[in-house]
Amino acid sequence: MLGEPEYTMNDLFAQLGLDSSDEAIEQFISEHKLGQDDNLVEADFWNDSQRAFLQEEWKLDAVWVEVIDELNARLHESA
């Protein structure tokens, strides 16, 4: 939509309170792979506030949903 900011993976990691450098993101993704049937928001590596943020934004189909979908896809890549 016009006027809405487009968030990046770096923005998402910063919002989640994680290291948002490109290197840290790649490392996180390589160390936290999800199985084909694993749900992103139910993954055990999120704390309660991270899980709540991801769940709420996804449910609302909010401005973050595109980058959350990208993270979800990347965490499931080799499933």
Rank of each mutant, 00 (worst) to 15 (best):
N47Q: 03
I25C: 09
S78D: 13
W46C: 08
N47K: 01
E56N: 10
N39F: 13
F53C: 01
L40F: 06
Q55D: 06
E77I: 14
L60Q: 00
E31T: 12
A24D: 03
E70A: 09
A79T: 13
K33F: 12
V65N: 02
Q36L: 12
F53N: 00
F28C: 10
S21H: 06
D69S: 15
S49R: 13
L12E: 03
E26Q: 05
E6V: 15
E56T: 12
L60I: 00
N72S: 14
D11R: 00
E4G: 10
D11C: 04
S21V: 07
K33L: 12
A52G: 05
A43G: 04
M9W: 00
L18P: 06
F13W: 00
W58L: 05
R51G: 02
S21M: 00
L16R: 02
G35S: 10
Q55T: 11
F13V: 06
E57V: 10
Q50C: 08
A79W: 14
L2R: 07
P5T: 13
T8N: 06
N47V: 08
I68R: 04
L34R: 11
G17T: 07
E31F: 10
M9T: 08
E77V: 15
E4W: 10
S78N: 13
V63I: 04
D37V: 13
L71D: 02
S78G: 14
W64A: 07
S49D: 15
E6F: 06
Q55Y: 09
W58N: 06
E6A: 08
A73G: 13
R51V: 02
G35T: 10
A52S: 11
W64Q: 08
D38F: 09
I25T: 09
W58M: 03
V41I: 15
Q15K: 15
Y7E: 05
V65P: 07
E31V: 08
P5C: 12
L12G: 04
A73P: 04
Q15V: 07
H32V: 05
A24E: 04
L34Q: 10
N10I: 03
D44T: 14
L34K: 12
E77C: 11
L71K: 04
D37E: 10
L75I: 11
M1V: 11
T8S: 15
D61R: 14
L75V: 12
S49I: 09
F45D: 01
M9R: 06
Q27F: 00
I29Y: 03
E42I: 08
F28D: 06
P5A: 13
I25G: 05
A14C: 06
Q27G: 07
F28E: 03
A62Q: 01
A14F: 09
M1Q: 04
D22V: 12
S20K: 07
A43M: 07
H32G: 05
L12I: 03
T8C: 02
L40T: 10
S21R: 11
D22K: 01
S78W: 12
D11G: 07
L71G: 02
E56A: 08
A73S: 12
S78H: 15
